[in-house]
Simulated scan of single mutants.
Amino acid sequence: MPIRHRLLAVVVAVLWGANFIAIHASLEIFPPFLCSALRFFLMAIPTLLFVPRPQVPTRWLVGYGIGFGILQFAFLYLAMDAGMPTGLASLVLQSSAPFTVVLGALLLGERLSPRAAAGVAVAALGMAVVGSQRLDAQAGLLPFVLTLMAGLGWAIGNLASRQAAAPKPLHLTMWMTVIPPIPMLLLSLLVEGPQRIGTALADSMTTAAIPAWVGLAYTTLLATVVGSGIWTWLMARHPSGTVAPFSMLVPVTGIALAWLLLGEVPAPLELVGGALVVGGVLWASRSRRVSTPAITAQPVTAQPSSRTGLTRSA
């Protein structure tokens, strides 16, 4: 994985880490399912009007929208509304990385190199250390399980976007936003009810709702369009097991911002866990040098791996 692609993956991790603060602000006004429906509705309309449909099989487009859009954010927003702390949510959602690796191996036949497997294991250990310090004190079992389900949804979306192999990944990302709005709105009507929806919409017209709208705008434009667009572009060019570990950098940003802005102070062991996450990701993404010059000099060796789903040496 070239250094510029690694840097892009880090940028996405920072954007998505800050996104948890934006979600927290939005949920102060909007109930979870309505908030998710609004997030995608704001992007679906201009997408249908101005963005050409991506040249990918419909099943992968729908799968991407269901996994990445509906499952991930329905469970995540519900978990945070049920009491999942912002920083902890940013950590537990990164269960998507090991989920992606496991599903990639089971469903796509992808191989994970020993180096990458060790890096993912170290990063997962870091997540476990941080989670063990915060779960009992700040969140119950239900929000934790809901966030794990959100991570599984993200992993399903990762594999669908990879299988789509869109020639224009941003178009795929934009069209993914067409899938969630109606199902999420129906969920909102069934679960949250017209009265709660009406109250939220009325409150959203006050000055107190400005942070919620700013958070919704950040989530829509920067997290979804920019972040997901770059992520889809990377997933189309590299094996799932190479790209997915970078998502483990998201909680580093999320926990740090939750500490600074929301007063969620991390314990010393949480900082140790964060260091393990960073170290594991860096180790998993580090390419192993190949001793034969004739092989390393051929740039085309990167192409078959993206088509077949097999990992390169990492």
Score class of each variant (00 low, 15 high):
M1N: 03
H5K: 09
L8G: 14
A9C: 06
W16T: 11
W16L: 12
G17H: 07
A22S: 15
I23M: 15
H24R: 15
S26T: 14
F30A: 03
P31G: 06
P32G: 02
A37K: 00
R39L: 05
L42S: 07
A44W: 02
P52N: 10
R53C: 05
R53Y: 02
V56K: 05
V56D: 05
T58S: 10
W60G: 01
L61R: 09
G63W: 09
G69W: 03
G69F: 01
I70E: 00
L71I: 14
F73A: 06
Y77T: 05
Y77K: 04
L78C: 05
M80A: 13
M84F: 03
P85K: 14
G87F: 03
L88A: 09
L91K: 10
V92S: 09
L93G: 09
A97G: 07
F99K: 02
T100D: 04
T100G: 09
T100Q: 06
V102K: 13
G104W: 01
L107S: 09
L108G: 06
G109C: 12
E110T: 03
R111Y: 11
A117L: 12
V120E: 00
A121G: 10
A121Y: 05
A121F: 05
V122D: 02
A123C: 11
A124E: 01
A124Q: 03
L125C: 13
V130C: 11
G131F: 02
S132W: 15
R134P: 01
L135A: 13
D136G: 12
Q138N: 15
G140P: 02
L142R: 10
F144Y: 08
T147P: 07
G151T: 03
G153A: 08
A155G: 06
I156C: 12
N158G: 07
A165G: 14
K168A: 14
T173I: 04
M174I: 04
W175E: 00
P181T: 02
I182M: 05
M184P: 00
L185K: 01
L187V: 01
L189S: 02
L189E: 00
G193N: 01
Q195A: 04
R196N: 04
R196H: 02
G198Y: 02
A208Y: 15
P211R: 15
A212E: 08
V214Y: 14
A217D: 12
Y218K: 14
T220C: 09
L221H: 12
L222Y: 09
V226F: 08
L234N: 05
R237H: 14
A244T: 13
L249W: 07
T253F: 10
E264I: 09
E264Y: 10
A267Y: 15
E270M: 13
G273V: 05
G273E: 11
A275C: 13
G279A: 11
G280W: 04
G280A: 14
V281D: 02
L282G: 04
W283D: 04
A284K: 07
A284L: 05
S285G: 08
R289M: 07
T292L: 14
P293K: 08
A294V: 13
A297H: 08
T301W: 09
A302G: 10
A302S: 11
Q303F: 15
S305E: 01
S305P: 01
R307Q: 12
